[in-house]
Design a protein around this nucleic acid. Structure first.
Lengths: 211, 211
DNA sequence: GGTGTTCATGAACGCGTGTTCATAATGACC
DNA sequence: GGTCATTATGAACACGCGTTCATGAACACC
Protein backbone atom coordinates (compact mmCIF):
# COMPACT_ATOMS: atom_id res chain seq x y z
CA UNK A 1 0.00 0.00 0.00
CA UNK A 2 1.30 3.43 -0.86
CA UNK A 3 1.56 6.26 1.62
CA UNK A 4 -1.16 7.91 -0.42
CA UNK A 5 -3.57 5.12 0.34
CA UNK A 6 -2.56 5.31 3.95
CA UNK A 7 -3.37 8.99 4.02
CA UNK A 8 -6.68 8.32 2.37
CA UNK A 9 -7.43 5.79 5.04
CA UNK A 10 -6.22 8.03 7.82
CA UNK A 11 -8.01 11.31 7.13
CA UNK A 12 -11.65 11.86 6.32
CA UNK A 13 -13.01 12.50 9.78
CA UNK A 14 -13.97 9.16 11.23
CA UNK A 15 -12.89 7.16 8.23
CA UNK A 16 -11.11 3.98 9.17
CA UNK A 17 -7.46 4.47 10.01
CA UNK A 18 -4.93 2.00 8.68
CA UNK A 19 -4.62 0.75 12.22
CA UNK A 20 -8.29 -0.16 12.24
CA UNK A 21 -7.92 -1.64 8.79
CA UNK A 22 -5.19 -3.93 10.10
CA UNK A 23 -7.21 -4.94 13.13
CA UNK A 24 -10.15 -5.73 10.89
CA UNK A 25 -8.01 -7.90 8.61
CA UNK A 26 -6.58 -9.74 11.58
CA UNK A 27 -10.07 -10.19 13.00
CA UNK A 28 -11.21 -11.77 9.76
CA UNK A 29 -8.38 -14.29 9.88
CA UNK A 30 -8.87 -14.92 13.57
CA UNK A 31 -12.50 -15.76 12.93
CA UNK A 32 -11.64 -18.05 10.03
CA UNK A 33 -8.56 -19.89 11.18
CA UNK A 34 -8.07 -19.07 14.83
CA UNK A 35 -5.46 -16.84 16.35
CA UNK A 36 -2.96 -19.55 17.17
CA UNK A 37 -1.73 -20.37 13.68
CA UNK A 38 -1.58 -16.87 12.27
CA UNK A 39 1.69 -15.32 11.16
CA UNK A 40 2.55 -11.70 10.68
CA UNK A 41 2.83 -12.30 6.95
CA UNK A 42 -0.63 -13.88 6.83
CA UNK A 43 -2.18 -10.82 8.39
CA UNK A 44 -0.23 -8.44 6.19
CA UNK A 45 -1.30 -10.34 3.09
CA UNK A 46 -4.94 -10.25 4.16
CA UNK A 47 -4.63 -6.49 4.66
CA UNK A 48 -2.73 -6.14 1.34
CA UNK A 49 0.16 -4.50 3.08
CA UNK A 50 3.84 -5.26 3.60
CA UNK A 51 4.66 -7.22 6.72
CA UNK A 52 6.78 -4.50 8.25
CA UNK A 53 3.86 -2.09 8.37
CA UNK A 54 2.43 -3.78 11.42
CA UNK A 55 5.31 -2.47 13.45
CA UNK A 56 4.40 1.11 12.61
CA UNK A 57 1.07 0.64 14.38
CA UNK A 58 1.54 -2.08 16.99
CA UNK A 59 4.32 -2.97 19.34
CA UNK A 60 4.36 -6.57 18.18
CA UNK A 61 2.24 -9.37 16.82
CA UNK A 62 0.68 -10.14 20.17
CA UNK A 63 -0.80 -6.69 20.55
CA UNK A 64 -2.48 -6.91 17.18
CA UNK A 65 -3.81 -10.40 17.85
CA UNK A 66 -5.20 -9.36 21.22
CA UNK A 67 -7.02 -6.46 19.59
CA UNK A 68 -8.35 -8.71 16.84
CA UNK A 69 -9.62 -11.24 19.38
CA UNK A 70 -11.21 -8.45 21.35
CA UNK A 71 -13.01 -7.14 18.29
CA UNK A 72 -14.13 -10.64 17.40
CA UNK A 73 -15.59 -11.30 20.83
CA UNK A 74 -17.31 -7.95 20.94
CA UNK A 75 -18.86 -8.58 17.55
CA UNK A 76 -20.15 -11.97 18.66
CA UNK A 77 -21.65 -10.49 21.80
CA UNK A 78 -23.27 -7.71 19.83
CA UNK A 79 -24.75 -10.22 17.42
CA UNK A 80 -26.16 -12.32 20.25
CA UNK A 81 -27.71 -9.55 22.29
CA UNK A 82 -28.30 -9.59 26.04
CA UNK A 83 -29.37 -12.45 28.28
CA UNK A 84 -33.05 -12.67 29.29
CA UNK A 85 -34.21 -10.36 32.05
CA UNK A 86 -35.38 -11.99 35.27
CA UNK A 87 -39.10 -11.71 35.92
CA UNK A 88 -40.07 -11.51 32.27
CA UNK A 89 -41.32 -14.52 30.33
CA UNK A 90 -41.17 -18.02 31.75
CA UNK A 91 -38.19 -19.38 33.63
CA UNK A 92 -38.02 -22.47 31.45
CA UNK A 93 -38.03 -20.44 28.23
CA UNK A 94 -35.45 -18.12 29.67
CA UNK A 95 -33.19 -21.02 30.54
CA UNK A 96 -33.57 -22.36 27.05
CA UNK A 97 -32.57 -18.99 25.66
CA UNK A 98 -29.60 -18.86 28.02
CA UNK A 99 -28.41 -22.29 26.95
CA UNK A 100 -28.78 -21.37 23.31
CA UNK A 101 -26.93 -18.15 23.99
CA UNK A 102 -24.09 -20.02 25.64
CA UNK A 103 -23.82 -22.54 22.84
CA UNK A 104 -23.87 -19.87 20.17
CA UNK A 105 -21.28 -17.80 21.99
CA UNK A 106 -18.94 -20.72 22.37
CA UNK A 107 -19.47 -21.78 18.79
CA UNK A 108 -18.61 -18.31 17.59
CA UNK A 109 -15.65 -17.71 19.83
CA UNK A 110 -14.02 -21.01 20.68
CA UNK A 111 -12.26 -21.67 17.37
CA UNK A 112 -10.61 -18.27 17.52
CA UNK A 113 -9.04 -19.15 20.86
CA UNK A 114 -8.14 -22.74 19.99
CA UNK A 115 -4.55 -23.53 20.74
CA UNK A 116 -3.90 -20.23 22.47
CA UNK A 117 -3.48 -21.76 25.89
CA UNK A 118 0.17 -22.44 25.25
CA UNK A 119 0.85 -18.86 24.18
CA UNK A 120 0.05 -16.87 27.28
CA UNK A 121 1.25 -13.52 26.00
CA UNK A 122 -1.69 -13.02 23.66
CA UNK A 123 -4.11 -14.05 26.38
CA UNK A 124 -2.53 -11.68 28.84
CA UNK A 125 -2.86 -8.75 26.51
CA UNK A 126 -6.38 -9.79 25.70
CA UNK A 127 -7.30 -10.03 29.36
CA UNK A 128 -5.94 -6.52 29.88
CA UNK A 129 -8.48 -5.07 27.44
CA UNK A 130 -11.96 -4.09 28.64
CA UNK A 131 -13.88 -7.36 28.35
CA UNK A 132 -17.46 -7.35 29.50
CA UNK A 133 -18.25 -10.95 28.67
CA UNK A 134 -14.90 -11.90 27.29
CA UNK A 135 -14.09 -15.52 27.70
CA UNK A 136 -17.23 -17.20 28.97
CA UNK A 137 -16.33 -16.45 32.53
CA UNK A 138 -18.37 -13.32 32.15
CA UNK A 139 -21.15 -15.45 30.77
CA UNK A 140 -21.04 -17.53 33.91
CA UNK A 141 -21.39 -14.42 36.03
CA UNK A 142 -24.31 -13.26 33.90
CA UNK A 143 -26.15 -16.53 34.27
CA UNK A 144 -25.56 -16.63 38.01
CA UNK A 145 -26.84 -13.07 38.26
CA UNK A 146 -29.96 -13.95 36.30
CA UNK A 147 -30.65 -16.93 38.56
CA UNK A 148 -30.20 -14.95 41.74
CA UNK A 149 -32.60 -12.33 40.45
CA UNK A 150 -35.21 -14.97 39.67
CA UNK A 151 -34.57 -16.40 43.11
CA UNK A 152 -35.32 -13.04 44.71
CA UNK A 153 -38.54 -12.97 42.75
CA UNK A 154 -39.43 -16.41 44.03
CA UNK A 155 -39.42 -17.94 40.56
CA UNK A 156 -36.62 -20.40 41.27
CA UNK A 157 -36.15 -22.48 44.40
CA UNK A 158 -34.86 -20.60 47.41
CA UNK A 159 -32.23 -23.25 47.99
CA UNK A 160 -30.92 -23.30 44.45
CA UNK A 161 -27.16 -23.10 44.07
CA UNK A 162 -27.04 -20.34 41.50
CA UNK A 163 -23.28 -20.21 41.08
CA UNK A 164 -23.00 -23.95 40.73
CA UNK A 165 -25.80 -24.08 38.19
CA UNK A 166 -24.21 -21.30 36.19
CA UNK A 167 -20.92 -23.18 36.18
CA UNK A 168 -22.66 -26.31 34.96
CA UNK A 169 -24.55 -24.52 32.22
CA UNK A 170 -21.49 -22.74 30.89
CA UNK A 171 -19.46 -25.89 31.16
CA UNK A 172 -22.08 -27.91 29.31
CA UNK A 173 -22.22 -25.38 26.48
CA UNK A 174 -18.46 -25.44 26.27
CA UNK A 175 -18.41 -29.21 26.30
CA UNK A 176 -21.02 -29.60 23.60
CA UNK A 177 -19.12 -27.33 21.27
CA UNK A 178 -15.67 -28.84 21.75
CA UNK A 179 -14.67 -30.57 18.52
CA UNK A 180 -14.08 -34.31 18.90
CA UNK A 181 -10.38 -35.09 18.42
CA UNK A 182 -11.02 -37.23 15.39
CA UNK A 183 -9.14 -37.52 12.13
CA UNK A 184 -11.08 -34.57 10.73
CA UNK A 185 -10.44 -31.61 13.01
CA UNK A 186 -12.82 -29.38 11.11
CA UNK A 187 -12.66 -25.71 11.95
CA UNK A 188 -16.40 -25.47 12.54
CA UNK A 189 -17.61 -26.64 15.95
CA UNK A 190 -20.40 -29.21 15.88
CA UNK A 191 -24.02 -28.14 15.81
CA UNK A 192 -26.20 -28.90 18.81
CA UNK A 193 -29.63 -30.48 18.36
CA UNK A 194 -32.65 -28.77 19.95
CA UNK A 195 -33.47 -31.89 21.96
CA UNK A 196 -30.09 -31.66 23.62
CA UNK A 197 -30.88 -28.11 24.66
CA UNK A 198 -34.24 -29.21 26.03
CA UNK A 199 -32.68 -32.04 28.00
CA UNK A 200 -30.14 -29.68 29.45
CA UNK A 201 -32.88 -27.30 30.57
CA UNK A 202 -34.88 -30.15 32.04
CA UNK A 203 -31.85 -31.38 33.93
CA UNK A 204 -31.17 -27.90 35.29
CA UNK A 205 -34.79 -27.51 36.36
CA UNK A 206 -35.44 -30.86 37.97
CA UNK A 207 -32.19 -32.52 38.96
CA UNK A 208 -31.85 -36.24 39.37
CA UNK A 209 -33.16 -36.85 42.89
CA UNK A 210 -35.86 -39.47 43.17
CA UNK A 211 -39.08 -38.05 44.50
CA UNK B 1 24.35 -41.95 25.32
CA UNK B 2 26.71 -44.60 24.04
CA UNK B 3 25.63 -47.62 22.07
CA UNK B 4 26.76 -49.64 25.09
CA UNK B 5 24.21 -47.90 27.29
CA UNK B 6 21.64 -48.46 24.60
CA UNK B 7 22.38 -52.16 24.64
CA UNK B 8 22.14 -52.16 28.43
CA UNK B 9 18.75 -50.56 28.18
CA UNK B 10 17.59 -52.85 25.42
CA UNK B 11 18.47 -56.29 26.74
CA UNK B 12 17.88 -57.71 30.20
CA UNK B 13 14.54 -59.36 29.69
CA UNK B 14 11.84 -56.84 30.38
CA UNK B 15 14.23 -54.03 31.18
CA UNK B 16 13.12 -50.74 29.70
CA UNK B 17 14.03 -50.27 26.08
CA UNK B 18 15.45 -46.98 24.97
CA UNK B 19 12.17 -46.40 23.24
CA UNK B 20 10.34 -46.65 26.55
CA UNK B 21 12.98 -44.48 28.14
CA UNK B 22 12.28 -41.76 25.58
CA UNK B 23 8.54 -42.02 26.04
CA UNK B 24 9.00 -41.75 29.80
CA UNK B 25 11.16 -38.65 29.42
CA UNK B 26 8.64 -37.06 27.10
CA UNK B 27 5.83 -37.95 29.49
CA UNK B 28 7.64 -36.21 32.31
CA UNK B 29 7.94 -33.02 30.26
CA UNK B 30 4.39 -33.29 29.01
CA UNK B 31 3.17 -33.49 32.58
CA UNK B 32 5.28 -30.53 33.64
CA UNK B 33 5.02 -28.09 30.77
CA UNK B 34 2.34 -29.42 28.44
CA UNK B 35 2.84 -31.01 25.08
CA UNK B 36 2.35 -27.88 23.02
CA UNK B 37 5.57 -26.08 23.77
CA UNK B 38 7.93 -29.04 23.71
CA UNK B 39 10.73 -29.29 21.17
CA UNK B 40 12.64 -32.33 20.06
CA UNK B 41 15.73 -30.94 21.69
CA UNK B 42 13.90 -30.50 25.00
CA UNK B 43 12.86 -34.11 25.04
CA UNK B 44 16.30 -35.32 24.01
CA UNK B 45 17.90 -33.27 26.76
CA UNK B 46 15.50 -34.66 29.35
CA UNK B 47 16.38 -38.18 28.18
CA UNK B 48 20.10 -37.30 28.09
CA UNK B 49 20.35 -38.30 24.49
CA UNK B 50 21.21 -36.62 21.21
CA UNK B 51 18.30 -35.13 19.36
CA UNK B 52 18.68 -37.32 16.30
CA UNK B 53 18.11 -40.46 18.34
CA UNK B 54 14.38 -39.90 18.40
CA UNK B 55 14.24 -40.63 14.70
CA UNK B 56 15.67 -44.08 15.25
CA UNK B 57 12.63 -44.99 17.32
CA UNK B 58 9.75 -42.80 16.15
CA UNK B 59 8.64 -41.56 12.78
CA UNK B 60 8.53 -37.97 13.94
CA UNK B 61 7.96 -35.74 16.91
CA UNK B 62 4.21 -36.13 16.78
CA UNK B 63 4.32 -39.87 17.26
CA UNK B 64 6.44 -39.52 20.37
CA UNK B 65 4.23 -36.80 21.80
CA UNK B 66 1.11 -38.82 21.19
CA UNK B 67 2.62 -41.78 23.03
CA UNK B 68 3.73 -39.55 25.88
CA UNK B 69 0.25 -38.05 26.21
CA UNK B 70 -1.24 -41.50 26.13
CA UNK B 71 1.03 -42.70 28.92
CA UNK B 72 0.25 -39.58 30.92
CA UNK B 73 -3.50 -40.06 30.65
CA UNK B 74 -3.30 -43.74 31.49
CA UNK B 75 -1.20 -42.96 34.56
CA UNK B 76 -3.73 -40.39 35.74
CA UNK B 77 -6.60 -42.81 35.26
CA UNK B 78 -4.74 -45.54 37.09
CA UNK B 79 -4.05 -43.17 39.98
CA UNK B 80 -7.70 -42.16 40.20
CA UNK B 81 -9.26 -45.59 40.08
CA UNK B 82 -12.75 -46.41 38.79
CA UNK B 83 -15.96 -44.47 39.17
CA UNK B 84 -18.42 -45.54 41.88
CA UNK B 85 -20.58 -48.57 41.16
CA UNK B 86 -24.31 -47.98 40.94
CA UNK B 87 -26.32 -49.48 43.78
CA UNK B 88 -23.51 -49.28 46.33
CA UNK B 89 -23.26 -46.48 48.85
CA UNK B 90 -25.46 -43.41 48.69
CA UNK B 91 -26.26 -41.58 45.48
CA UNK B 92 -25.23 -38.26 46.93
CA UNK B 93 -21.89 -39.57 48.11
CA UNK B 94 -21.35 -41.23 44.77
CA UNK B 95 -22.05 -38.00 42.95
CA UNK B 96 -19.60 -36.22 45.17
CA UNK B 97 -17.00 -38.83 44.36
CA UNK B 98 -17.76 -38.49 40.67
CA UNK B 99 -17.37 -34.73 40.76
CA UNK B 100 -14.12 -35.03 42.65
CA UNK B 101 -12.99 -37.61 40.16
CA UNK B 102 -13.78 -35.32 37.25
CA UNK B 103 -12.02 -32.37 38.81
CA UNK B 104 -8.95 -34.41 39.65
CA UNK B 105 -8.83 -35.90 36.17
CA UNK B 106 -9.07 -32.53 34.50
CA UNK B 107 -6.52 -31.04 36.86
CA UNK B 108 -4.11 -33.82 36.06
CA UNK B 109 -4.63 -33.90 32.34
CA UNK B 110 -5.68 -30.49 31.13
CA UNK B 111 -2.31 -28.72 31.31
CA UNK B 112 -0.74 -31.44 29.21
CA UNK B 113 -3.23 -30.77 26.43
CA UNK B 114 -3.20 -26.99 26.71
CA UNK B 115 -2.59 -25.30 23.41
CA UNK B 116 -2.78 -28.51 21.43
CA UNK B 117 -6.00 -27.58 19.66
CA UNK B 118 -4.10 -25.74 16.97
CA UNK B 119 -1.81 -28.70 16.27
CA UNK B 120 -4.23 -31.38 15.13
CA UNK B 121 -1.60 -33.91 14.11
CA UNK B 122 -0.67 -34.81 17.66
CA UNK B 123 -4.31 -35.09 18.63
CA UNK B 124 -5.06 -37.30 15.66
CA UNK B 125 -2.28 -39.68 16.55
CA UNK B 126 -3.39 -39.62 20.15
CA UNK B 127 -6.97 -40.36 19.21
CA UNK B 128 -5.80 -43.34 17.17
CA UNK B 129 -4.31 -44.99 20.27
CA UNK B 130 -6.48 -47.19 22.52
CA UNK B 131 -8.04 -44.66 24.89
CA UNK B 132 -10.54 -45.95 27.40
CA UNK B 133 -11.23 -42.69 29.17
CA UNK B 134 -8.90 -40.54 27.15
CA UNK B 135 -10.04 -36.98 26.86
CA UNK B 136 -12.90 -36.55 29.26
CA UNK B 137 -15.39 -37.61 26.64
CA UNK B 138 -14.98 -41.09 28.03
CA UNK B 139 -15.59 -39.67 31.47
CA UNK B 140 -18.88 -38.27 30.25
CA UNK B 141 -19.90 -41.67 28.97
CA UNK B 142 -18.93 -43.24 32.29
CA UNK B 143 -21.00 -40.78 34.30
CA UNK B 144 -24.00 -41.22 32.03
CA UNK B 145 -23.68 -44.98 32.37
CA UNK B 146 -23.56 -44.70 36.15
CA UNK B 147 -26.66 -42.53 36.20
CA UNK B 148 -28.63 -44.85 33.94
CA UNK B 149 -27.71 -47.78 36.15
CA UNK B 150 -28.92 -45.94 39.23
CA UNK B 151 -32.04 -45.04 37.33
CA UNK B 152 -32.72 -48.70 36.59
CA UNK B 153 -32.34 -49.38 40.30
CA UNK B 154 -34.83 -46.65 41.08
CA UNK B 155 -32.31 -44.58 42.99
CA UNK B 156 -32.48 -41.57 40.71
CA UNK B 157 -35.62 -40.04 39.18
CA UNK B 158 -37.12 -41.98 36.29
CA UNK B 159 -37.34 -38.81 34.23
CA UNK B 160 -33.74 -37.73 34.79
CA UNK B 161 -31.81 -36.72 31.68
CA UNK B 162 -28.73 -38.81 32.33
CA UNK B 163 -26.78 -37.72 29.25
CA UNK B 164 -27.47 -34.06 29.85
CA UNK B 165 -26.49 -34.32 33.49
CA UNK B 166 -23.29 -36.09 32.56
CA UNK B 167 -22.47 -33.33 30.09
CA UNK B 168 -23.08 -30.71 32.73
CA UNK B 169 -20.98 -32.45 35.34
CA UNK B 170 -18.04 -32.98 33.02
CA UNK B 171 -18.36 -29.44 31.71
CA UNK B 172 -18.47 -28.00 35.21
CA UNK B 173 -15.35 -29.90 36.22
CA UNK B 174 -13.62 -28.68 33.09
CA UNK B 175 -14.75 -25.13 33.72
CA UNK B 176 -13.64 -25.07 37.33
CA UNK B 177 -10.17 -26.20 36.40
CA UNK B 178 -9.62 -23.84 33.48
CA UNK B 179 -6.95 -21.34 34.49
CA UNK B 180 -8.14 -17.75 34.49
CA UNK B 181 -6.42 -15.81 31.68
CA UNK B 182 -4.72 -13.46 34.07
CA UNK B 183 -1.21 -12.00 34.05
CA UNK B 184 0.09 -15.11 35.82
CA UNK B 185 -0.74 -18.10 33.65
CA UNK B 186 0.58 -20.55 36.19
CA UNK B 187 1.01 -24.10 34.98
CA UNK B 188 -0.97 -25.55 37.88
CA UNK B 189 -4.76 -25.41 37.49
CA UNK B 190 -6.63 -23.84 40.39
CA UNK B 191 -7.74 -25.91 43.34
CA UNK B 192 -11.45 -26.40 43.92
CA UNK B 193 -12.92 -25.86 47.38
CA UNK B 194 -15.03 -28.66 48.92
CA UNK B 195 -18.05 -26.35 49.24
CA UNK B 196 -18.00 -25.86 45.50
CA UNK B 197 -18.16 -29.61 45.02
CA UNK B 198 -21.04 -29.82 47.48
CA UNK B 199 -22.95 -27.06 45.72
CA UNK B 200 -22.44 -28.78 42.41
CA UNK B 201 -23.82 -32.04 43.80
CA UNK B 202 -26.75 -30.24 45.34
CA UNK B 203 -27.51 -28.53 42.05
CA UNK B 204 -27.36 -31.83 40.21
CA UNK B 205 -29.65 -33.47 42.73
CA UNK B 206 -32.30 -30.81 43.15
CA UNK B 207 -32.31 -28.47 40.17
CA UNK B 208 -33.64 -24.94 40.39
CA UNK B 209 -37.38 -25.40 39.94
CA UNK B 210 -39.50 -23.82 42.60
CA UNK B 211 -41.54 -26.40 44.47
C1' DG C 1 40.46 -62.04 16.56
C1' DG C 2 38.18 -60.51 12.59
C1' DT C 3 33.75 -59.19 10.49
C1' DG C 4 29.19 -57.35 10.13
C1' DT C 5 25.44 -54.97 12.23
C1' DT C 6 23.34 -51.89 15.24
C1' DC C 7 22.79 -47.45 16.83
C1' DA C 8 24.09 -42.94 19.38
C1' DT C 9 26.57 -38.76 18.10
C1' DG C 10 26.63 -33.90 16.88
C1' DA C 11 27.13 -31.01 13.22
C1' DA C 12 24.63 -29.50 9.41
C1' DC C 13 20.60 -28.30 6.31
C1' DG C 14 16.37 -25.99 4.98
C1' DC C 15 12.68 -23.59 6.32
C1' DG C 16 9.60 -20.39 8.58
C1' DT C 17 9.27 -17.20 12.04
C1' DG C 18 9.12 -12.24 14.25
C1' DT C 19 11.42 -8.17 13.66
C1' DT C 20 14.39 -4.34 11.75
C1' DC C 21 16.23 -1.05 8.45
C1' DA C 22 17.73 1.74 4.52
C1' DT C 23 15.14 3.33 0.71
C1' DA C 24 11.87 5.77 -1.74
C1' DA C 25 7.42 7.61 -2.58
C1' DT C 26 3.85 10.62 -1.09
C1' DG C 27 1.25 14.65 0.71
C1' DA C 28 1.51 19.06 3.61
C1' DC C 29 3.26 23.55 4.15
C1' DC C 30 5.52 27.99 3.19
C1' DG D 1 8.08 25.04 -6.57
C1' DG D 2 11.03 23.50 -2.88
C1' DT D 3 11.49 21.44 1.61
C1' DC D 4 10.18 18.40 5.20
C1' DA D 5 7.93 15.01 7.89
C1' DT D 6 5.32 10.53 7.21
C1' DT D 7 5.14 6.07 6.27
C1' DA D 8 4.79 1.88 3.12
C1' DT D 9 8.18 -1.07 0.96
C1' DG D 10 10.66 -5.40 0.59
C1' DA D 11 14.97 -7.21 1.38
C1' DA D 12 17.61 -8.72 5.14
C1' DC D 13 18.75 -10.50 9.86
C1' DA D 14 18.85 -13.61 13.72
C1' DC D 15 16.87 -17.29 15.69
C1' DG D 16 14.68 -21.74 16.61
C1' DC D 17 12.58 -25.42 14.69
C1' DG D 18 12.20 -30.50 12.75
C1' DT D 19 14.90 -33.44 10.39
C1' DT D 20 18.97 -35.80 8.08
C1' DC D 21 23.50 -37.78 7.54
C1' DA D 22 28.40 -39.18 7.63
C1' DT D 23 31.13 -40.78 11.45
C1' DG D 24 32.60 -43.87 14.79
C1' DA D 25 31.96 -46.74 18.88
C1' DA D 26 30.18 -50.91 20.89
C1' DC D 27 28.34 -55.52 20.77
C1' DA D 28 27.23 -60.48 18.58
C1' DC D 29 28.82 -64.13 16.08
C1' DC D 30 31.94 -67.36 13.78
Amino acid sequence: MSPRTAAVLRDGGGGPSLRDHLVAAAERLVAERGAAGLTVRDIAREARVAAGVLYNHFADKEELLALALHAHVRAAERALGPLPVAGTGGVEDNLRAIVRHGIALHRAILPAFAGLASRPKVLERFAALPNPLADGRGLRAGIAEYLRAEQRLGRVAAGARCEAVATMVVGACHELVLPPPGPLPGAAPPEVAPEVVDDLVAAVLDGVRRR
